[in-house]
């Protein structure tokens, strides 16, 4: 048995293994977005987790790896909104209480879970059929975003936290569109060695000292000046 046969068989037995190959792609995109474009996200973990949460929410069991984009994005954003509302409300509640950090975050995560669970119950009551096939694992992924969100809320402001969440959602949607694209998945499946390229890209981005696209805009006035120096 040669290596390519093993590879073929592994993927046939567990089609979602391909996600492990897609993870480096997503992580690399998040890195490029930050250092080359200047997207500000809720850390590197949140956009990756959110991307895969979208993916799982869009999965339709009957078609293997196929993730329905409309379903994924729609449910993903609905649950993210529930998580954000839950986080904001519970942090408000704890705002001026002196507590240890871990129990504080656990308190927030518990509230968020209760909110998510209530959403599911409400959907059930309203007989929304789409909610019945929701992947619980995806919900746990989305709920975990609350930690980073809470940290920003405590440190900075609601406005900053919301802006960062917005940019995180945008970058996650972009990554999700890419990894859910069947042709792209096929490309990675056919040429798994391509993944090694992400190492090169990450190394190069890690050494990049130039201006970010966002900084080009921010400092446009200075850059667009004629003269020496």
């Amino acid at each position: 048995m040669n290596i390519s046969t093993i590879y073929q068989e592994a993927l046939t037995a567990q089609p979602l293994f391909v996600l492990l190959l897609l993870l480096p792609v997503v992580a690399t995109i998040v890195g490029v977005a930050k250092h080359v474009i200047g997207v500000k996200s809720l850390g590197i973990y949140a956009p990756i987790v959110l991307t895969f949460a979208f993916y799982f929410l869009g999965l339709n069991g009957t078609y293997g790896n196929y993730s329905d984009i409309w379903t994924g994005v729609r449910y993903g954003l609905i649950f993210l909104l529930v998580v954000i509302v839950g986080t904001v409300l519970s942090t408000r509640l704890l705002k001026n209480r002196r507590m240890h950090y871990f129990p504080k975050v656990s308190f927030v995560l518990s509230t968020v879970s209760i909110f998510l669970f209530s959403t599911m119950l409400a959907a059930q009551a309203l007989e929304k059929s789409g909610f019945t096939s929701i992947n619980a694992f995806a919900l746990i992924l989305i709920a975990s975003v609350a930690e980073q969100f809470t940290a920003i809320l405590f440190k900075k402001s609601l406005k900053t936290a919301l802006l960062l969440s917005l940019e995180t959602s945008l970058i996650s949607i972009f990554c999700y569109l890419l990894i859910a694209w069947p042709s792209f998945q096929q490309l990675i499946v056919n040429y798994p060695y391509l993944i090694l390229l992400t190492l090169v890209v990450n190394y190069l981005v890690g050494k990049y000292r130039g201006l970010r696209v966002r900084e080009l805009l921010r400092f446009q006035e200075i850059l667009d000046e004629s003269g020496e120096n």
Partner: peptide, 12 residues
């Protein structure tokens, strides 16, 4: 702007 790109200090 491209010619001046090395004038300004960015985060990176």
């Amino acid at each position: 702007m491209w010619e001046n790109r090395k004038k300004v200090l960015g985060m990176n």
